[in-house]
């Protein structure tokens, strides 16, 4: 029995229950798909399903990964230029947090902010979503302002604390710095 299992594992790469779970998944997914394929909306559904994956994995994800790079590079550059003066309070996350907040709201409420749904909304409700984007801009402003205020407070607290002498006895390890920063 043990030898059989081991042989199976060498062949398949996982234990047999794994295969059972996969078969269950494909059976359910296949059954669900039979309700729309073949059918008039099958193509549009397929395009949107694939589009959702491609849109996130190959467009949205690289965008936000690259959006973070300037911050990482700036931080690295700052360390190179001012090696003996570590930042009292690193600013990087005071930029990241409001950007993230504004971005996630912008994404979730995109149909409203972009007013794409306005015609249907007006037809259904007699009201309009035109101008709601201003609320998003307002919230974005508040997030950045709040982050800046917290940063200022932290900076103030750090400045009041006694600082170690500027010529720190321990030299930063240049090799390590260069390696870890070389993104």
């Amino acid at each position: 029995m043990r030898a059989t299992l081991r042989f199976w594992r060498h062949l398949y790469g996982e234990n047999p229950l794994h295969l059972l779970a996969m078969v269950g998944c494909f059976a359910l997914v296949g059954y669900a798909v039979t309700f729309v394929f073949p059918g008039p909306s099958a193509l549009a559904l397929g395009i949107w399903f694939a589009g959702a994956v491609i849109g996130h994995d190959l467009i949205l994800y690289p965008l936000y990964a690259f959006a973070d790079q300037p911050l990482v590079v700036l931080r690295w550059a700052r360390r190179r230029v001012l090696p003996r003066r570590p930042a009292l309070v690193p600013a990087i996350n005071h930029v990241r947090a409001p950007v993230l907040g504004a971005a996630v709201l912008g994404l979730i409420y995109f149909p409203t902010i972009s007013q794409r749904g306005d015609a249907a909304f007006t037809f259904a409700s007699g009201h309009s979503m035109v101008g709601e984007y201003a609320n998003w801009l307002l919230i974005t402003g508040v997030l950045f302002l709040g982050s800046a205020v917290i940063y200022a407070i932290r900076l103030g607290v750090a400045l009041r604390r006694p600082r170690p002498p500027v010529t720190a006895p321990e030299e930063p390890d240049e090799v390590t710095e260069a390696r870890s920063g070389a993104t």
Binding site: S41, A44, P111
Partner: peptide, 14 residues
């Protein structure tokens, strides 16, 4: 939920 129906299929089905 934000009245943007630009898919080309029924929301409920999808």
């Amino acid at each position: 939920s934000q009245y943007d129906y630009g898919w080309g299929f029924s929301f409920y089905t999808a």
